[in-house]
């Protein structure tokens, strides 16, 4: 899971530093990842065979309390990849370090969200599956395990595919899967005692560079998009008048 700026905040770029203004913007758990956590917890509860749910997150140590929220939801333990050396990692570097952390932890099934609300590249699940060397099933809206295979309904643009694969496998979970639960008071109290391991760069024994040095892309420029000003406002007395105002406008713009 990833920590992101609060989605409800109107984000701003500081014109001088060209960086995101983080002051006054709360950091939260990426909302897309909450669906994956919920799916993991439901599967664990259904299996009731001693399976455990581990949260893995690459985030600065200051994000600990947010990771604890996932533990409060019911996950068993957490692993945080926290090291200043990870800063500036691109999709490849993030997937590479996460794969190392997940391998070290051990896994049968890796669940992710489908994207993050800040970067929205949607490229991490595929890259992570590849670097873990396991099959990847993306955009799952249901999740079940039977006869040794993970079975999901994978959303397509016009419907779904019923897909299955043996373990180990990576599955990305969509928001249609299940509404994430709120942590109970008991969960919140219990989360404080759950194990939260911090892994540093050295713990991962990586062979390639991560962070800004290892990135495969380089930011050259940040520019403001062309501004969108306030347009025309027309009050419509009735349906015909409102429709005519729009049709005239579309003709003016050569859209009709």
């Amino acid at each position: 899971m990833k920590l992101v700026p609060d989605t409800n905040a109107d984000k701003r770029i500081d014109p001088a530093t060209k960086r995101l203004v983080r002051t006054g913007v709360e950091t939260v758990l990426n909302p897309f990842d909450e669906y994956a956590i919920e799916a993991a917890l439901q599967l664990k509860e259904k299996l009731a065979d001693g399976s455990t749910v581990t949260i893995v997150s690459m985030a600065p140590e200051t994000g600990k309390e947010i990771v604890r929220k996932a533990l409060a939801m019911g996950a068993d333990n957490a692993v945080m990849l926290s090291d200043p050396a990870f800063a500036g990692s691109d999709v490849w570097g993030t997937a590479y370090a996460l794969a190392a952390g997940i391998r070290k932890t051990g896994f049968d099934l890796v669940l992710t969200g489908t994207q993050s609300t800040d970067a929205i590249t949607g490229e991490l699940p595929g890259a992570l599956a590849e670097l873990l060397g396991v099959p990847g099933i993306t955009y799952a809206r249901t999740l079940a395990f039977s006869d040794g295979r993970i079975r999901v309904q994978r959303e397509t643009e016009t419907g779904y595919q019923a897909v299955s694969a043996p373990l180990p496998v990576l599955v990305s979970i969509t928001k249609s899967a299940a509404e994430p639960r709120y942590p109970s008071l008991k969960g919140i109290m219990g989360a404080k005692k759950k194990e939260l391991v911090l892994l540093r760069l050295a713990d991962l024994e990586l062979t390639a560079a991560v962070g800004g040095d290892g990135a495969k892309v380089e930011l050259i420029e940040l520019a403001a998009p062309p501004a969108r000003g306030k347009g025309r406002v027309v009050a419509a007395a009735d349906g015909a008048a409102g429709a005519k105002a729009i049709v005239d406008f579309l003709k003016e713009r050569k859209l009709l």
């Binding site: 969108r228 000003g229 306030k230 347009g231 025309r232 406002v233 027309v234 009050a235 419509a236 007395a237 009735d238 349906g239 015909a240 008048a241 409102g242 429709a243 105002a245 729009i246 049709v247 406008f249 713009r253």
Partner: peptide, 17 residues
Amino acid sequence: FADLLVVGDAFTIVPEL
């Protein structure tokens, strides 16, 4: 930020449009 905002009843404007 809309180029055109029509203030009125959508349920009559949309079918007419």
